[in-house]
Design a protein around this nucleic acid. Sequence first.
DNA 1: ATACTAATTTGTAATCGTTACAAATATAAA
DNA 2: TTTATATTTGTAACGATTACAAATTAGTAT
Lengths: 142, 142
Amino acid sequence: MTDKTEIDIKSLLEEAGIKPTLQRLKIYEYLITNKNHPTVDKLYSDLHDLIPTLSKTTLYNTLNLFVEKKITVPITIEMDEGRYDADVSSHGHFKCRKCGAVYDFPHIKGTEDGELPSGFVAERTHLYVWGLCENCQKNIEK
Amino acid sequence: MTDKTEIDIKSLLEEAGIKPTLQRLKIYEYLITNKNHPTVDKLYSDLHDLIPTLSKTTLYNTLNLFVEKKITVPITIEMDEGRYDADVSSHGHFKCRKCGAVYDFPHIKGTEDGELPSGFVAERTHLYVWGLCENCQKNIEK
DNA sequence: ATACTAATTTGTAATCGTTACAAATATAAA
DNA sequence: TTTATATTTGTAACGATTACAAATTAGTAT
């Protein structure tokens, strides 16, 4: 972890109007670094090594704050566990029903706006696709 | 509720390989008739009037069965409550962040398949859009 | 520096949606 | 009718998330 990264994370939070406390810096840095759509449990156990005093309440509060300030996107591809993604650019999420991994794939949002009823205003679009990833597809064919 | 409807519901369940018990018939009929993407609580309280002995476990079991047999789609637009839709045809879901209603809108699935990484196989696609519906948009402009 | 105020973090307890499980009931077969 | 099987039911358990108040930290004025 270089100083430059530290500074970038800090600036990113400040630009979003978030006071950069230690916990928020580390949580956001983790999300920026690990783009594998971690669950809250994964975030908690990994971040607990960096900040031994971190509480789950702070983690939830912080994630909700990030979502509110639009620097993080919640992924509700399945109902029973929340995942988070610091990549707020336009893309879709693919969940493999066999291995459970969540992959990004390119998707340009806004194309569906023309399909919305007139007067409806889109603010956030989530495209979720379930299926089999390349590896699991190969294993099933055998 | 006509006999014809009764028979149609029954056939639809049987075609899906589901034994048409009283509970299943009433639950499926409710979903077919009320296309407003009800939550489990809404389903339970409304169906409880028709079947006073209905238990929540049966409701959950039945909904999971319908999803498994692909005659119902779970809507996970938000993490904290499950909604269900008996319309399994290709369309998107719009949730108004102000009034909370969930609307259907036309969306032809499969168009995003070309965007998936090679080797990935799509089996189910969910498109969720958050924003403001026509009514709430008007009220805000005032 | 010191005292005071506000914001943040923490731990525990509560909440809520969902599932596990075993008993009770209904259905189908022999 | 008996027997086996499937379905339904109620209660208890579970797990993710939030509420809440105390403890800690940071910021500001004196």
